[in-house]
C-alpha cells in the first residue's frame, strides 16, 4: 500500500532524509521514531505529497505521489501535530468543506458518527476559536477521516489530547488498522508505539537505522536481553544522543 524507494529530501546543502526505503502493507501500523531532527516530519510530509522528494519514489495505493498526486491523495489522509483549521468555519462547516473537496456524497451521514465518536457533536456549530486545543485536534482528525482514507499519516497524534482522548485515539488507530487501513505514525511517545504499532522504523540523521516488526528490531538490539523494551531499543539504536 505504501512503497518508498530511495527517498531523499534535501534543503539546500542540508540532507534531511537520505536514501530511505521501506514498505507498509494494509493492516500494518508503522511507527516512525528517531531523535529530534532525524527527518521524521520531512519523511511524513514527502509521503503525504506535501513537499516534493529530492530523489526516490513514493507510491501510495499504487499511485506515484510525484506523477499521479491527485489519485494518491484521494487515498490518504495526513494528520499534522498542530491542527491547522480555518478560523471562520464552524466544526460542521469544516466537514462540509472537506466533503466537497474530496467529493464525499451524503457526508452528513458519515460526519455525525465521527463527531459522536470523538465527542464533539455538541460543538458542531462552534468556531475553532471556541474550542480547546484537544477539540481542535479531534476536529482535524475527523476532517481527515471523512473520506474514509486507506492510508493515514499521523504526526504526533496525541499532542493536546486528554487521557480519555488518548485512549480513544489509540483505539481508533488500532481499529482502523484491523479494518485494513495502512498507517504510519510519528511520535516520541515510545510506549504509544509499543501499544499501537506492528512495525517500527528508526531514523537518525536522515538515515534508516533499522526497520521491521517491533519484536525483530528489539531482538536485533537486545544483546540477548529478552525483556528489552522499545525505549531501550531506541537508545541503543540511536546511540543515546540526538543528531
Amino acid at each position: 500500500m505504501i512503497e518508498v524507494t530511495a527517498l531523499t529530501k534535501r534543503y539546500g546543502q542540508f540532507t534531511a532524509v537520505k536514501d530511505v526505503s521501506f514498505a507498509v502493507q494494509p493492516g500494518e501500523v508503522l511507527g516512525l521514531v528517531g531523535p529530534n531532527g532525524a527527518g521524521k516530519t520531512s519523511t511524513l510530509r514527502c509521503l503525504a505529497g506535501i513537499i516534493p522528494a529530492s530523489a526516490g519514489t513514493v507510491r501510495i495505493a499504487g499511485h506515484d505521489v510525484a506523477t499521479d498526486a491527485v489519485a494518491a491523495k484521494r487515498a490518504l489522509a495526513f494528520f499534522p501535530d498542530e491542527p491547522r483549521l480555518f478560523d471562520y468555519l464552524t466544526v460542521r462547516q469544516h466537514l462540509n468543506f472537506v466533503a466537497r473537496i474530496y467529493g464525499v456524497a451524503g457526508h452528513e451521514g458519515i460526519a455525525q458518527p465521527l463527531l459522536e465518536e470523538f465527542e464533539i457533536a455538541d460543538k458542531a456549530d462552534q468556531l475553532p476559536g471556541e474550542l480547546s486545543r484537544g477539540m481542535k485536534q479531534k476536529l482535524a482528525i475527523i476532517c481527515g477521516l471523512l473520506h474514509e482514507p486507506r492510508v493515514m499519516f499521523f504526526d504526533e497524534p496525541l499532542t493536546g489530547l486528554d487521557p480519555l482522548g488518548i485512549r480513544r485515539m489509540k483505539d481508533s488507530i488500532a481499529r482502523r488498522a484491523r479494518e485494513g487501513a495502512t498507517i504510519v505514525l510519528s511520535s516520541h511517545l515510545l510506549h504509544l508505539l509499543e501499544e499501537v504499532c506492528s512495525h517500527v522504523l528508526i531514523l537518525k540523521r536522515g538515515e534508516k537505522i533499522a526497520d521491521g516488526r517491533i519484536a525483530d528490531v528489539a531482538a536485533r538490539f537486545s544483546n540477548g536481553d529478552p525483556n528489552v523494551n522499545l525505549e531501550e531499543v531506541f537508545i541503543r539504536a540511536t546511540g543515546g544522543s540526538e543528531t
Binding site: 510530509r45 503525504a48 506535501i50 498526486a69 491527485v70 490518504l76 491547522r84 474530496y102
Partner: peptide, 13 residues
C-alpha cells in the same frame, strides 16, 4: 499560504 500544508494534501491539481 500559512495552511499550504493542509491544502497540498487535498486531491486537487
Amino acid at each position: 499560504l500559512s495552511r499550504a500544508d493542509v491544502l497540498k494534501t487535498y486531491p486537487l491539481a
